[in-house]
Design a protein around this nucleic acid. Structure first.
Lengths: 240, 240
DNA sequence: CGCCGACTTGATAACCTTCAAGCTCCGTGG
DNA sequence: CCACGGAGCTTGAAGGTTATCAAGTCGGCG
């Protein structure tokens, strides 16, 4: 259920694992740090291998750790009393998540769920204040993270308040191809398995409506989709 | 259009103005500070008198100042391409707002508009990093502020994704009475003038729907409302 | 007094959910 | 290997919710 933790005792170890991910250098939390600082930070990191459907943390859990996603994708959602899930944001590589401390929270307010296999670094929340104080670039990355969340959430509020279901679905799919898109022959594919139900939980509608509109777009040659896969062939043709 | 600024040259001045508001002592940004620190902070503050409909800042403006609301109420909204307003959150006394720096932004992402007369303190954004470093309680207040915003926004997303219009309106009104309610004979009144249109902009619906449901509730003896006024008589009878 | 903003209310129709049924694909166990 | 079962997907029909269109009322202010 919960992903395995691999505590890093030797920083050579951490570096080996982490340098394997060539994207690390570009990831903001690490990009502006000195080699010494980076070493310090990685020494205290735990590498988490994340598998599809893993829950990194759940709404209400004590906020023991904060994370940086290195690879993969997560959905962050809240559950309603009657078991419905409402997806609030997604996390992509390079983003911090589980940063309850940045909000003065002791517990996580949402649930984080892996939508594909991935890799993350994690630190004990006890480190938060010290990291913020000692590593300016890390602190800046935290500000950027909460700004990105706010933007993504306020976009969603505006969309739900003003757009019809078809446009909301179109926008959600477009956004996913931009953030997680992989170029394939004849289009851009969302880079992880995603169901009609998943999309409905992102847009506040039903899986039936998602299915209907995607069928319509498929007939129009705008998207191509099958079981858990979505390929956008003509992004510009999606209804806004 | 824009509220007048009253620069404070003598801290005796600032203290006089500010101690007049007996609530200040409870306001988090100031509650945990030493007298010396509070004096330092107030010395650098500008007191802004805010009048109904004043715009403190607009979406896209350079983020020159950050604020603490002492009295009154603000709506924070975004405008769509076709001129619609979508209210994202409200601000009540004691809350920080305009804290773009906390999100690593150079510009304001939303517009802040006074829904009644009020009073605020403001500081130049240049002070932000120093305040965060030197005044732990102020920093804690900032974390709390962004946490409250996130909660309010994610609540709104969940509501819009799962509730019908009637319930969303009921919830919005209930929330307003809790945050801005004034006890009057026979109920709790929302403490500032508010139109059906305002409520529709908070809930992603039309003024017509708001009017219809409020008429229905009025007939049922749950609310009493007139031009720009809303009094809730039986909060527990509102449909969730 | 007259205007204008705020509010109300009916009628109509569009949009979307709900209900229902059936299909396809894939993995699994006999 | 094949049958079965279930998850994911599709599509029609029906009905409810909500927006839109259209009038018209109310009340305060210049």
């Amino acid at each position: 259920m919960s992903p395995d933790d691999y505590a890093i005792s030797h920083h050579s170890n951490a570096h080996a694992l982490v340098h394997a991910d060539e994207a690390l250098a570009q990831h903001l939390p690490f990009s502006g740090l000195s080699d010494q600082q980076r070493t310090d930070i990685l020494d205290q990191a735990t590498v988490k291998r994340i598998s599809l459907n893993d829950t990194c943390f759940s709404e209400g859990d004590e906020a023991r750790n904060f994370y940086v996603l290195l690879d993969g994708a997560l959905k962050i959602y809240r559950s309603t009393d009657d078991g419905e899930q409402v997806v609030i944001i997604h996390i992509s590589p390079g983003q911090m998540f589980g940063i309850a401390r940045a909000y003065a929270d002791d517990t996580y307010q949402m649930t984080a769920n892996a939508v594909c296999d991935g890799l993350a670094l994690s630190w004990s929340s006890e480190n938060w204040d010290r990291f913020m104080r000692d590593y300016p670039e890390f602190e800046r990355a935290a500000r950027k993270a909460i700004g990105e969340r706010r933007d993504e959430m306020s976009d969603k509020i505006v969309d739900m308040a003003t757009l019809q279901v078809e446009q909301r679905i179109a926008k959600a799919i477009l956004r996913l191809t931009k953030r997680y898109g992989k170029t394939v022959e004849g289009g851009i594919e969302i880079g992880f398995p995603i169901t009609r139900q998943d999309i409905s939980e992102m847009t506040g509608t039903t899986l039936h409506s998602v299915s209907r509109y995607m069928s319509k777009w498929q007939k129009a040659g705008i998207v191509r989709s099958s079981r858990r896969r979505v390929i956008v062939e003509r992004p510009e043709a999606l209804p806004i």
